[in-house]
């Protein structure tokens, strides 16, 4: 079968019962998409299919033929190809806000956030939460994840981004104080 992943067409051979996630990970070596619950609960395997976040563990690879697939590995190169600099702004914001603990949910979270911002450049906090509601963070690091996305929106609106948790904790603390 032919799969278009991150802008490249790959000629891959896999049996009918393989999922898109399995082909990405075990044929193409793209292990950024995580195999979590493998039954559609956790969202760790989220990839973009024609620009929309989808659960790749519940899509048969052959059903994804003819669709444009973007995985976490493709995000930075695609951003550069569109004339951007540095990592994709969502990746950069997740980095700056410490929006990960173990990191397992991160690729899915970032892709869900990317698709939201492509569709709705200035979403409300509720729209952000709703767009990420199919991605579970088992470490419960949701506050920083939401703040990371809010910071991109704040930058676009030209307003003050949310204060990062460790900065808030430092408010009022004097040098030398424990």
């Amino acid at each position: 079968m032919h799969l278009k992943v991150n802008g490249d067409v790959h000629d891959v051979d896999a049996p009918d019962h393989w999922t898109l996630l399995e082909v990405l990970r075990y044929r193409l070596g793209l292990t950024g998409s995580k195999q979590g619950c493998d039954k559609g609960d956790c969202g760790a395997c989220t990839v973009l299919v024609d620009g929309e976040p989808m659960i790749s563990c519940l899509i048969l690879a052959r059903e994804a033929e003819g669709r444009e697939i973007v995985t976490i590995e493709g995000l930075w190169p695609l951003h550069l190809a569109r004339g951007g600099e540095g990592p994709d702004p969502v990746q950069d914001a997740f980095d700056r806000y410490g929006a990960l603990q173990c990191g397992f949910c991160q690729s899915g979270m970032i892709l869900s956030a990317r698709a939201l911002l492509d569709r709705t450049p200035s979403p409300t906090d509720e729209e952000i939460a709703r767009a990420l509601s199919g991605n579970l963070c088992r470490c419960t690091g949701y506050t920083q994840i939401l703040q990371a996305v809010q910071s991109i929106v704040a930058r676009a609106r030209g307003v003050e981004p949310p204060r990062r948790s460790w900065e808030a904790a430092n408010v009022g603390r004097q040098a030398g104080e424990r």
């Binding site: 559609g40 969202g43 989220t46 976040p53 989808m54 659960i55 899509i59 509601s133 199919g134």
Partner: peptide
Amino acid sequence: VAGPQLRRA
């Protein structure tokens, strides 16, 4: 129904 990704599929 379910979450956003599953509602799309």
